[in-house]
């Protein structure tokens, strides 16, 4: 254990033309910490995850993972934009689950979970299958290994997606509104799985969510984003119990009224 943050956003900005999506974000996340990101749509919260997964480039600042730059690399004592080789080495520590599942439709649940371990990590099929079977069992889908995504419900697909991400043994897991595309009755089974991996794995978890109840119960820290900046952050008891900022209060009031 080190006291080095697992993830560090150091003054990171993201712009699309004239539109600034994130404005000088600085955020440290400790090893094993569970952080929820909440905020109105367009506040830049999903962009935080996408930048960390390297799905988006950044315009300013540096993102660090376990004390090593992700977006940049050291060249003669200076940080220069990272090449793909460097990015792939560092992002191997990160896994992500998407709102729309993004399972590979031409592969069974099992094949989805062994694809990257075999092609990227070079695992033997038997080892990859054993590991995937364990994970599919953990997410409660041991009976669905041979099923294709189109044969599974949304909740089941999302649980396969979680198993698929875990199969790469990431140290950091990103959850991007993973229950937003689900029918209400299927939300619980996915949250249950996330709760479980939060317990069973020494994982750093970063999630964008609209499930305030879950964020409150599950997170060590909640960050409220507003217009590309962290407006307020703190332990869930404080942020939900006694929000200091007026915008936070407005947002929480609106969300609670809605449902």
């Amino acid at each position: 254990m080190t006291d080095q943050p697992m993830v560090r956003f150091d003054n990171v900005s993201k712009r699309y033309g004239a539109l600034t999506v994130l404005d000088g974000l600085s955020l440290d996340i400790a090893r094993g910490e569970k952080v929820s990101i909440i905020g109105p749509s367009g506040s830049g919260k999903t962009t935080v995850l996408r930048m960390l997964m390297t799905l988006e480039t950044i315009n300013d600042g540096v993102i660090w993972v376990e004390g090593e730059p992700l977006t940049h690399m050291d060249k003669g004592g200076k940080l220069v934009p990272a090449n793909l080789g460097h990015i792939r080495r560092v992002r191997a520590k990160i896994g992500m689950v998407f709102q729309s599942f993004n399972l590979f439709p031409h592969m069974s649940a099992m094949a989805n979970c062994i694809e990257a371990p075999m092609t990227v990590l070079g695992m033997k099929r038997a080892d990859a299958e054993a590991r995937a079977a364990e994970l599919l069992d953990m997410v409660g889908l041991s009976q669905k290994k041979a099923h294709y995504p189109s044969q599974l419900s949304g909740g089941q697909q999302q649980r396969v997606a979680i198993a698929r991400a875990l199969a790469m043994r990431p140290k950091i897991m990103l959850f991007d509104e993973v229950t937003s595309a689900l029918d209400p009755e299927l939300v619980g089974e996915v949250l249950q799985v996330i709760r479980q991996i939060g317990r069973e794995h020494d994982l750093t978890m970063l999630m964008v969510t609209h499930q305030m109840g879950f964020a409150k119960e599950f997170s060590d820290r909640v960050c409220f984003f507003y217009q590309g900046k962290i407006c307020e952050q703190g332990p869930p008891s404080e942020l939900f119990g006694a929000p200091k900022n007026e915008r936070t209060r407005q947002f929480l009031r609106a969300v609670l009224e809605a449902g």
Partner: peptide, 19 residues
């Protein structure tokens, strides 16, 4: 989303295309 999932699984460009 298929590209994004492949990136999140740390595949190389050639692996994503082929598989």
């Amino acid at each position: 989303g298929q590209w994004e999932a492949s990136i999140a699984l740390n595949m190389s460009r050639a692996q994503m295309l082929r598989r």
